[in-house]
Simulated scan of single mutants.
Amino acid sequence: MTTTRRDTDAIRTLQGLADPRSSVRLRAAMAAGTAPDPGFVDTLVERCAIEPEFFVRDMLTWALTRHPVSVTLPRLLRDVRSERAQARSQALHTLSKIGDRRAWPAITPALLSDADDEVARSAWRAAVVLVPEGEEPDLAAVLATQLGRGERETQLSLSRALVALGEAALPTLRAATAARDRRVRAHAIATERLLRDPDAGMEFAIDEAKRVVVLGEAGQEGH
């Protein structure tokens, strides 16, 4: 392929990423990953921050994983600190897919407790992928501060992150089962059960944990 042809294709790809039609953006993101070019990285990351379609965002992330980490990592780390929630969330999601542990220092307690649920969920997923060996108990302790947070999907994401840490999460979860907050207790009990029996299913574990908490409170009131 001649230089002129490559340049023309690159321009077409960059223009496609900004097209109002999601199908065109999807094809452009696929093209950017199929024929990686460092010149695409800034536009791919910028598009991640504003892209409304899930499937296009997923393809943008795939395209970024096809580029050299030396180019993508610094750019993604900037977006992790963005004021735009989607930029933070997508940057974290992409970092979890790349899996380069040099990104670990960027996974701060502030991100793990971000007020935006999607950002926090992305941070939890990235954290369990990037955590250095030996630091899992410390990460579990930070994640446990979010027990009881949000609706079921958010709780499922946190439970999966804690379960991914394995035995390192057990002491923290056991401590949380005695928390004063009913939601925290139920979430901790459900997560501990899921860790011990992954086949149980999170929906079942949460429902069972709620019953345990209610029965325990009823027993205390009876005394």
Rank of each mutant, 00 (worst) to 15 (best):
M1Q: 06
T4L: 14
D7H: 04
D9E: 14
D9S: 03
R12N: 05
T13G: 02
L14Q: 03
L17D: 00
A18L: 05
A18K: 08
S22H: 04
A29D: 04
M30G: 03
G33C: 08
T34R: 12
P36T: 02
P38R: 09
V41F: 08
T43V: 14
T43Q: 15
E46R: 11
E46M: 09
R47E: 12
C48W: 02
E51R: 02
P52M: 06
E53L: 06
F54Y: 10
F54S: 13
V56N: 05
R57H: 05
M59K: 12
T61Y: 01
T61K: 08
W62G: 01
W62P: 03
A63Y: 04
L64M: 07
R66F: 01
R66I: 00
V71S: 06
L76F: 01
E83K: 03
R84E: 11
Q86E: 10
R88V: 01
A91P: 01
H93C: 03
T94V: 07
T94Q: 01
L95A: 05
S96M: 03
I98N: 01
D100H: 07
R102N: 05
A103N: 04
W104Y: 07
A106C: 04
T108Q: 08
L112V: 07
D114A: 15
A115S: 14
D116W: 11
R121P: 02
R121W: 07
A123W: 06
W124M: 12
W124A: 10
V131Q: 08
P132F: 10
E135D: 14
E135V: 04
A140E: 12
A141C: 06
A141R: 10
Q146V: 08
L147I: 07
R149D: 12
G150H: 10
E151S: 08
E153M: 12
E153P: 03
T154L: 12
Q155M: 11
L156V: 12
L156P: 01
L158G: 11
S159T: 11
A161S: 13
V163A: 14
V163S: 11
A164R: 13
G166H: 08
G166K: 06
A168D: 13
A168V: 09
P171K: 07
T172V: 04
T172M: 03
L173H: 08
A178T: 10
R180T: 13
D181G: 05
R182A: 15
H187G: 07
H187S: 14
A188G: 10
A188I: 06
A188Q: 11
A190M: 13
A190F: 12
R193T: 12
R193E: 15
L194H: 13
L195E: 12
R196K: 14
R196N: 14
D197R: 15
P198S: 14
A200I: 15
A200M: 15
A200C: 15
A205Q: 15
G219R: 09
Q220S: 10
E221R: 12
E221P: 01
